[in-house]
Design a protein around this nucleic acid. Structure first.
Ligand code: MN
Ligand code: MN
Ligand code: ZN
Ligand code: ZN
Lengths: 152, 152
DNA sequence: TTCGTATTGAAACTGATTTTCAATATCATT
DNA sequence: AATGATATTGAAAATCAGTTTCAATACGAA
């Protein structure tokens, strides 16, 4: 029985490299470093965080290449931007299908969940407002089990 | 019978000025201009948009004063920041109680709605993920009745 | 009306992101 | 494996939104 929540890490970061390759991009060390860093992360990272983490393995990496790689990964929908009260320039591994984010307010750890059923609400709001509803954003914030334990 | 959706404009922009006054701030022309502009707007506006609109009535207004006034209005919870795929620095008149935004993807017109009932989903996701859920973001995007008509 | 000071707009500054550019690395082709 | 066209690179310069500084001004309590 499959769980309804899932970690953002993709099964295989090779998929990302394959996808970049298939889209006509070259596989370079800077790109590998960024992919590696993001694909291994349990939480959303911004450009500088990726830069700092990736340089531990690949010190000559330039910040500009991080920005350029993020741009491509986002276009290919391998990653997605995460909006947060503290900022909206962090990225996390994307997931297919209809999923939403659950984010730890303490450590930032993110998971995806699915199974929100908002059809009834869509209809009621559409009725009352006259809007034709096309998209929705839903995001939960809380404390992950680890951070709850640490608080004690 | 009260509708469950409502326009973001406050009944009376004088309320905002009173609130600023009550908080120890002086009522100045730049502040009045920003309040006027935001309180009259049906959609979220960023600093530059407010600056441009407000200067039509008050040409000597400085952009710095827009930023400074926004900061105060946000602290007083008279306005709130609106996150959007195209940017997250726009503000709209705030509302009390538990409400969420419905935004037109064409003209930006915003309304608030209430009555989302996510308790069951909170519990299920909390159970499956181990997270203690504290907050949620919910936002709808679509086309307002006017923009739907205009498309025909 | 007076007067202390909160507020102002211009200019300088900051930090994040983008652009430019010459040097380099990738990879399809030989 | 070697070649060569060119996509990609990092450094430096440029841009952009937002913030800080500061002397001049406007608010509003007295
Ligand atoms: Mn959903
Ligand atoms: Mn809600
Ligand atoms: Zn946590
Ligand atoms: Zn509209």
């Amino acid at each position: 029985m499959a769980t309804k929540t899932s970690s953002p890490c993709p099964e295989n970061k090779q998929d990302w490299l394959d996808c970049l390759k298939a889209s006509g991009y070259r596989l370079t060390s800077p790109r590998r470093a960024v992919v590696e860093t993001l694909a291994n992360s349990q939480r959303a990272l911004n450009a500088t965080e990726i830069y700092d983490l990736a340089r531990e393995q690949y010190p000559s990496l330039g910040l500009v290449s991080v920005y350029r790689t993020l741009e491509k990964l986002e276009q290919l929908e391998l990653i997605q931007r995460v909006h947060h009260p503290d900022g909206c320039q962090a990225f996390i591994a994307g997931f297919t299908g209809h999923q939403h984010l659950l984010i730890c307010q303490s450590c930032g750890k993110a998971e995806f969940f699915e199974g929100d059923n908002l059809e009834m609400l869509f209809e009621r709001v559409a009725q009352e407002s006259g809007y034709q509803i096309q998209e929705h954003w839903l995001q939960f914030f809380g404390f992950c089990s680890k951070c709850r334990t640490d608080k004690d």
